[in-house]
Nucleic acid binder design. Structure first.
Lengths: 220, 220
DNA sequence: GTCTATACCGTGATAGAC
DNA sequence: GTCTATCACGGTATAGAC
């Protein structure tokens, strides 16, 4: 199956790889072509320019986001919805972490991508809000309605810039799965002060689950 | 007084101006020189390269940070210490917002700056932690000791990337003072769930204070 | 200290042969 | 579809005159 990738797909796949490894900004179309052993001209046959490549990668990302993060269906288990949400966040953050490492820069160079991004983000905000409301309804957290949107934004900001934060704190250390899980853990900690007494143990268990995956790495 | 600026200082001052206006990445040494009506060669007489300029600007920033954010002296008024801290954060965020708009990118291009930054950040973390402990001691917030460091990191992350977050949400809107104050307000909201019942009204007042400064702008 | 002129290089992108 | 040229451009940086 892998052998049957068309050049176009190989370019996309190699791009994600290189972007994640050394950062989107540092990777040029020449690098991508060289990495694949094809000519720059060939790359330009398949894509108009580098932005075009990034945009298509984002499309793939957005598609995954949509399929993986479903709105909570039944009110039965809000905490399960949260967990599945966190898993999805982790997966996407890891798979496309180059994107998270320099988001403002990437967006500022491509108005079209900006549009797409903002559209996706509106959906994300709605879903986060929905999860929060479900958690409140299930009496897992106790929060005033007017604070929900703010908390949702805080969560979104934390998720969006967790990788960037890591890079500012320890630029030499490569991003690995454990460090991404640390971000998931931090999100959980934003909830903690809102947790009801009865939900405390369940949240603690979730916390331990992700703590195990995050390893014992400590921030500098 | 202004007229007596030496060329070197004029370059620094113009650089900050341009960086804030259009972003550090887009501004070249040529732009800076042209903006001042001097030759590129002249600029290179005063600075080795652009990184050198950015580094010196950071030094100025770090100096201000140190003089403006003093560790809380007496335990008498922890909440005052917090307020003065928030004011200082605002001032620096506003004055050097180009720096906050693309931190990972700027740092990744200059290992020397990275070093300086990390050193400064260690001090910041210590001070935030000290303020949090003082707030706990004054019974303004209620928090477990083991959570303090995590909260400090969350606050630091929020402050560091607030401008970046704004830019991802609404890239076309220019950063103004009100939008920076919205970030200050968000920091305050991170505290809210930890506030003791007795401190609630005082925190609310602080909140209103910054809300007024932040205007009624709403996030997209 | 300041200028002009210039060399150098990487990047993005295209034309035209195969 | 793919390759081999090849270019224009902009940014960095330096040399040498004033």
């Amino acid at each position: 199956m892998e052998k049957k990738l068309r050049t176009k797909d190989k370019i996309l796949q190699a791009s994600v790889e290189l972007f994640n490894q050394v950062g989107e900004r540092q990777v040029t179309t020449n690098h991508i072509a060289a990495h694949l052993g094809i000519s720059p001209g060939n790359l330009y046959y398949h894509f108009r320019n580098k932005e075009d490549i990034v945009r298509q990668i984002f499309k793939e990302y957005a598609k995954l986001l949509e399929t993986r993060i479903k709105p909570p269906t039944d009110k039965a288990e809000a905490l399960d919805a949260l967990a599945s949400y966190l898993d999805a966040v982790f997966e996407l953050m890891w798979r496309f972490h180059f994107f998270y490492a320099n988001l403002p820069d990437i967006l500022s160079r491509d108005p079209a991508l900006q549009q797409d991004y903002q559209h996706v983000q509106q959906g994300v905000l709605a879903r986060v809000t929905a999860v929060l409301k479900a958690l409140k309804q299930s009496e897992i957290i106790q929060i005033e309605d007017e604070d929900i949107t703010d908390l949702a934004h805080s969560i979104k900001l934390l998720v969006t810039f967790w990788i960037s934060y890591l890079k500012t704190q320890a630029p030499d250390k490569d991003i690995d799965q454990a460090s991404v899980y640390q971000g998931v853990l931090k999100v959980l900690l934003l909830f903690k002060p809102y947790a009801t007494a009865q939900a405390q143990p369940r949240i603690s268990r979730l916390q331990q689950h992700y703590a195990a995956l995050a390893g014992d790495a400590t921030l500098v």
